[in-house]
């Protein structure tokens, strides 16, 4: 009996973690596969999403309710994504070392936004009201309804993303640009427009993660840092380049993390995960599930 309880606790919390990670990492992975850059501002976009939603919807802010909060957050995040692409990524497209340079410029964007958030909203802790209140029993484990919402919403959002990329004209264009931007240009694809769309979409995913996690965790300006690092680990695990690999790795990491936390405690878990990462890289440099990078 106790064994089953334990298994249930590990699995459920692993899937909750994995859902958040999958939403977060898919946005990062989308930008990587399409533009070949890593957006280190991805985490702070998540923070921004949560703060904007808080300001619009919460009693401590404007108190306009959930719907308004979501609407404004969507608009703000699309705007922020486009702005980042325009200001710190676009000028370097022709650069030979675009990867290294954009790591530095998106890092700068992250520092800028994170301190900007602190300047505007202050350091005081905030929390979003849960979208759905109450608790839910899953198998043998009780979790909040908000976490259940994440478990349900993540696969839906990711499936929608997958459908968009594989079925829609723009989505297919985004995939084509990622595989061969020059060939894409010659069949009439406006590559720079798709870059912007990709960035906006990725920012939107980060913001959504922020809104969902913002009622489970406390909001600080560094709210997005830890998820960003987890997302980085996931894309290494998943092998760079495929959305499917990234999503699988996200859930895998969630479950590994829950298992480790259960057995060795929250303090040593990050070190163990890092150790695991090093071992994986030593034996499979292309990632656990990945193919060789371009």
């Amino acid at each position: 009996m106790i064994m089953v309880d334990m298994l249930s606790a590990i699995l459920v919390s692993g899937i909750v973690l994995g859902s958040g990670y999958a939403l977060m990492a898919s946005g990062l992975s989308l930008v990587w596969t399409t533009l070949g850059i890593f957006n280190f501002a991805h985490g702070v976009l998540m923070t921004l999403g949560a703060y904007v939603a808080w300001t619009i919807s919460s009693g401590g802010g404007l108190g306009l309710g959930l719907a308004a909060g979501v609407a404004v957050t969507v608009a703000a995040l699309i705007g922020a994504g486009i702005l980042i692409e325009r200001v710190v990524v676009r000028p370097f497209y022709d650069h030979r070392d675009i990867l290294l340079i954009t790591v530095m410029t998106t890092l700068a964007a992250m520092i800028f936004l994170q301190n900007g958030i602190q300047l505007i909203w202050g350091a005081r802790l905030k929390q979003l009201a849960p979208i759905v209140p109450g608790t839910v029993q899953l198998w043998r484990t009780t979790i909040s309804a908000q976490e259940t919402l994440m478990i349900v919403l993540a696969p839906i959002v990711l499936a929608a993303l997958w459908l968009f990329l594989s079925r829609s004209r723009i989505g297919r264009g985004i995939k084509a640009v990622g595989q061969n931007a020059d060939a894409a240009r010659l069949i009439g694809i406006d590559v720079s427009r798709l870059f912007i769309i990709t960035f906006a979409l990725s920012a939107l995913l980060a913001g959504l993660t922020g809104v969902l996690l913002g009622s489970v965790r406390l909001l600080t300006p560094e709210f997005g840092s830890e998820p960003l690092v987890k997302a980085l680990i996931i894309v290494i695990f998943g092998g760079l380049g495929s959305l499917g690999g990234t999503i699988a790795a996200a859930y895998l990491l969630g479950i590994i993390e829950a298992t480790l936390t259960f057995f060795i405690g929250i303090y040593w878990t990050p070190s163990m995960i890092f150790l695991l990462l090093i071992v994986v890289l030593l034996f499979r440099p292309q990632g656990l599930l990945g193919k060789v990078v371009r």
Binding site: R172, G173, A183, G188
Partner: peptide, 15 residues
């Protein structure tokens, strides 16, 4: 587009 199938590629090319 290395990872695309022939038909996908042709359909996409009517962009």
């Amino acid at each position: 587009f290395p990872d695309m199938q022939i038909m996908e590629t042709l359909e996409l090319s009517a962009f």
